[in-house]
């Protein structure tokens, strides 16, 4: 159970910093093929943006709704990863062989590029939700009930 921070500077700075952090996380996630970054880092930065709202405004504040909602998505990222692998199986290839994705109008290299993008999103979702979930678990004390 985390209480809201009592410093006005932290509250106002947090309000401005959280959207920037989310934007930066999305940028890192989708620029992972051109530069450093990718699913793991992008997922952790997205988790960090939710953790900032938890640490600044407290677990029960209305600003922390996104973190509570994210907990319901536990496992969705892993399912997306497995789903892409299964689509490759349907297309006639091996599991996670993106060249077998049945998408008309794309050559083999573009299909593999698309497969990398989709699985990166899956990894990012999984890592972000797990980070928020571990923090909720560690901050849950004996008596209270949330999440």
């Amino acid at each position: 159970m985390i209480q809201a921070h009592d410093s006005l500077i932290v509250l106002i700075l947090g309000r401005g910093l959280i959207p920037v952090t989310q934007l930066f996380g999305l940028y890192v996630l989708f620029s992972g093929q051109q530069g450093p970054g990718g699913g793991f880092v992008g997922g952790v930065i997205l988790a960090t943006s939710m953790l900032l709202s938890l640490l600044i405004f407290g677990t029960d504040a209305s600003q922390s709704r996104l973190a509570h909602r994210a907990l319901h998505g536990d496992g969705v990222g892993l399912l997306l990863f497995v789903f892409v692998g299964g689509l490759c199986l349907i297309g006639g290839g091996e599991v996670l062989n993106y060249a077998a994705l049945e998408i008309p109008g794309l050559d083999v290299a573009a299909r593999r590029y698309l497969g990398i993008v989709l699985t990166q999103i899956g990894v990012a979702l999984d890592v972000a939700v797990t980070g928020v979930s571990i923090v909720f678990s560690l901050s849950a004390s004996n008596g209270d009930s949330h999440a």
């Binding site: 093929q33 450093p36 290299a109 590029y113």
Partner: peptide, 10 residues
């Protein structure tokens, strides 16, 4: 193969 310049990601 994958149009991805970042070899680590590919």
């Amino acid at each position: 193969d994958t149009l991805t310049p970042n070899v680590v990601t590919s």
